[in-house]
Simulated assay, not measured.
Amino acid sequence: MKLLVLAFTTALLAAGPPLASEVENPLQPSPLWDDLRASILGTDEEPRIDPSILLLDAPQRADNPALVPVHVTQPDGAPAIAALTLVIDGNPAPVAAEFTFGQALMPLDFEVRVRVDTYSDLRAIATLEDGSKVMAGRYVKASGGCAAPAGKSMDEVRATMGEMRFRKADEEGRSIGTLMIRHPNFSGLQRDQLTLLTIPAEFIQTLAVRQDDAELFTMSAGISISEDPVFRFAYEPGSGPVMVHAADTDGRVWDQSF
Rank of each mutant, 00 (worst) to 15 (best):
V5T: 01
L6C: 15
L6P: 03
F8E: 05
F8C: 01
T10D: 04
G16V: 11
G16L: 05
P17W: 06
P17V: 11
E22C: 14
E22F: 08
V23H: 10
V23D: 13
P26L: 14
L27S: 10
S30R: 03
S30H: 10
P31T: 09
L32K: 12
W33K: 02
D35S: 15
L36C: 08
S39L: 02
I40S: 06
T43M: 07
E45A: 14
P47V: 07
R48Q: 11
D50C: 13
D50H: 14
P51M: 12
L54E: 03
D57F: 11
Q60W: 09
A62D: 02
P65G: 13
P65N: 05
A66F: 04
V70C: 03
V72C: 09
T73S: 05
P75T: 11
D76G: 08
I81Q: 03
A82K: 04
V87S: 07
D89P: 02
A93P: 01
A93H: 04
A93I: 05
A96E: 00
A97I: 08
F99Y: 09
Q103C: 04
L105E: 02
M106Q: 03
P107Y: 01
D109I: 00
F110A: 03
E111S: 06
R113N: 11
V114T: 06
V114R: 00
D117T: 01
Y119H: 04
S120P: 01
S120C: 01
L122W: 00
A124H: 00
G131D: 02
S132L: 00
S132A: 05
M135R: 02
M135W: 02
M135E: 03
R138H: 03
Y139T: 00
K141E: 09
A142N: 08
S143G: 08
G151H: 07
K152C: 07
K152W: 03
M154A: 02
D155H: 03
R158W: 03
A159I: 00
A159V: 06
T160P: 08
M161R: 15
G162W: 07
G162C: 14
F166Q: 01
E172W: 05
G173I: 14
T178R: 11
L179W: 01
R182C: 15
H183L: 14
P184L: 13
P184I: 13
G188Q: 05
G188T: 08
Q190E: 14
R191I: 10
Q193E: 10
Q193Y: 09
Q193T: 13
L197W: 06
P200E: 15
A201Q: 11
E202H: 11
F203E: 11
F203Q: 15
F203W: 10
T206P: 05
A208R: 12
A208I: 14
A208Q: 12
R210M: 15
R210G: 13
R210C: 06
A214Q: 15
A214K: 07
A214Y: 07
M219S: 10
G222W: 06
I225Q: 08
E227H: 09
E227R: 08
P229T: 08
F231I: 15
F231H: 11
F231T: 06
Y235D: 10
E236G: 09
E236C: 05
P237R: 13
G238A: 14
V244I: 06
D250W: 13
G251M: 06
G251I: 08
R252Q: 13
D255G: 10
D255E: 08
